[in-house]
Computed example of a mutant assay.
Amino acid sequence: MASADEDRATEQPGLRERKKRQTRAALSQAAIRLCVLRGWADVTIEQIAAEAGVSVRTFRNYFTGKAEAIAAGHVERMLRVADELLARPAGEPLWDSLLHAVLGQFVPAGAAAAPAPHHDRWREGVRLMLTEPALAGEIVKANAAAQQALAGAVARRTGTDAEHDLYPKLVAAAVAAGTAVAVEHSLRAEETAPLGAVLAQVFAQLSAGLPVP
């Protein structure tokens, strides 16, 4: 029988990893929030660290700058999508499970209740932030990491191999592209397009095999 010390040694790496993930997420959320509300040029690493309640040294232990911190938010969100996918009922159709998992992270409960003026300001801030050239390369890297994580979850869910089988990689790429298109469409639509409704439309078309309109 394992001793208490051995049990703690087994649990500790998982606990440390969770705490690191929480710190990364807090820093990324702080960077996004400040850059959206204040503008890219008016936000410093010192302000981001203070907003997240950590030191600048801690920030630099995780990220090289604002762009990497912001892009990391996408990876973290897709990691949570992967976690939610694996938690969905085993008998649920894959694309239904994926839609529920994505909506849970991209349209959290209560998001639609935000006042319209605040929502409009946030949309405009996100739109401006995403035009920053410094973000482009980091977003490409974040997308690759996000797809890899999601492909692993799809493989576990479908009994396929994330490294050698094409299917989980294709599904992950389709989900990543579909969510990106939905977010862009929602942000850039002339009239407010609720993200949840756009995501539902995207996944309906993906699950149907993208029939020609």
Rank of each mutant, 00 (worst) to 15 (best):
D161V: 04
R60Y: 15
A208L: 12
I70Y: 01
A193T: 03
A114S: 07
V198K: 07
Q148H: 14
L128C: 04
E76I: 14
A180Q: 13
C35W: 02
A9R: 12
R18E: 15
R157S: 04
A173S: 13
L195A: 02
E11A: 14
D96T: 14
G196S: 09
A208D: 13
V43I: 08
A146I: 03
P108T: 10
F59Y: 09
E190T: 12
V126L: 12
R16C: 06
S55W: 04
N143E: 13
A153F: 06
P13I: 08
T44K: 07
G104Y: 00
Q201L: 12
A87D: 15
V126M: 10
G137M: 10
Q22I: 07
E6K: 10
A116S: 10
L15W: 11
A136M: 05
A204P: 01
P213R: 07
L166G: 00
T64F: 04
A208R: 11
A172H: 03
V81A: 00
P13T: 07
E191N: 08
A162W: 11
K20P: 01
A173K: 06
A153Y: 05
F203L: 12
T179N: 06
P89Y: 08
G65W: 07
G152R: 11
P13Q: 07
G209K: 06
A153L: 06
L34A: 06
A142D: 02
A136I: 10
A101W: 03
L199Y: 05
A26V: 03
I139R: 14
H118C: 02
A189F: 06
M78F: 15
G125C: 03
M129C: 10
H119P: 00
A9W: 06
A31C: 09
A174M: 14
R88W: 00
P213E: 07
A208C: 09
D96G: 01
T179F: 01
E68M: 09
T131D: 14
P108M: 10
L170W: 12
S97C: 10
Q47R: 11
A151C: 09
A155Q: 08
L206V: 13
Q22W: 09
K66Y: 02
A177V: 05
T44G: 09
A155K: 08
Y167P: 02
N61P: 02
R156D: 10
